[in-house]
């Protein structure tokens, strides 16, 4: 009897080991580029292009971090980080709140014109942003928004600039929630906003957190909007500043690019690690049943 318990335990342990070996080795493939980036960022300039395939630097230096962080003409990456946090932070909050609100409308209220508007919303995702730059710039110039944060934040707060992705996603999650819950709440005297706020929102928390993670990363990495609308270098974001190291026809500060690229991933990773817990802890326990 004890031997069968033992063998079951051994078997379980064996399966656990196999799982970890597989998932980990595949993970190395996933991680390889990040390791390469990290390794290259610590190589001296003369080594970067002469030993490209090595991950581990022959000579170790932090010069690129110091030099890169210095930024340009007295405006350092501290400023760029502040701007990026402001932009990504506000953008994310606004985007998730709006998306959830709008998604509830599309998912739970049947109103005339709903399908048409929903179609319009999806269509905005199908037109490449690059082609909209010029018309949009002309519009925003006339609104005198150039060199302010408005063109970066407001479209996000109003569900534009790719936010349709989140609205659509949350719609799908809301539609996965039994309608009986709404009906019960309605009988208990809860209005539509109450249902939205107290019933549906807690149940789609994984979707909201997922939206938040994506939104933060997309806003953080977006360089086109800040590039076009921000003129003053003191307003530049990390994503824009990173690209100001590159001049393919002349000199490109690859060391600084690698160092600052690597550094710019840190906040995104931290946000992911903190918030993904919220997804997986999820709502399975909150008694949702079909």
């Amino acid at each position: 009897m004890s031997s069968s318990v033992l063998s079951m335990r051994t078997r379980r342990r064996f399966r656990e080991v196999v799982f970890h070996v597989l998932v980990f080795s595949f993970g190395v493939v996933m991680l390889y580029p990040l390791l390469w980036l990290a390794g290259s960022s610590f190589k001296p300039s003369t080594e970067i292009w002469t030993t490209v395939s090595n991950i581990v630097p022959r000579t170790f230096t932090v010069a690129h971090y110091i030099n890169g962080w210095r930024g340009f003409g007295g405006v350092s990456f501290a400023t760029f980080y502040r701007n990026s946090f402001l932009y990504a932070g506000l953008g994310t909050l606004a985007s998730v709140a709006t998306s959830a609100f709008v998604a509830f409308g599309f998912a739970r209220v049947r109103f005339p014109g709903r399908n048409i508007w929903f179609g319009c919303m999806l269509a905005t995702l199908m037109l490449p942003v690059q082609i909209q730059i010029i018309p949009q710039y002309i519009l925003f110039t006339q609104l005198r928004w150039v060199n302010t944060f408005w063109p970066l934040i407001l479209p996000r707060a109003l569900g534009q600039a790719g936010q349709a992705f989140f609205i659509f996603m949350i719609v799908q999650f809301i539609r996965g929630i039994p309608i009986e819950l709404d009906e019960a709440a309605s009988i208990d005297g809860l209005g539509r906003f109450g249902i939205f706020n107290r019933i549906v929102m807690p149940l789609v928390k994984p979707a909201l957190v997922t939206s938040g993670i994506f939104s933060f990363y997309w806003t953080w990495a977006d360089f086109l909007t800040p590039l076009i609308y921000l003129n003053d270098p003191r307003l530049y974001t990390v994503s824009v500043a990173l690209r100001a190291f590159a001049d393919p026809s002349g000199q490109t500060d690859w060391g600084a690019i690698f160092a600052m690229s690597f550094l710019s991933l840190v906040p995104v990773l931290i946000v992911f690690v903190i918030f993904q817990k919220q997804i997986v802890e999820g709502i399975s326990t909150s008694g949702l049943k079909g």
């Binding site: 209220v109 905005t124 909209q132």
Partner: peptide, 28 residues
Amino acid sequence: RRAIAGYLFISPWLIGFLTLTLLPILGV
């Protein structure tokens, strides 16, 4: 009532669409 509620919920997006996105798209 339902129509009003629906449009109220989607209003942030709808306003954004009509003011910020539609014009550039029509421009394209």
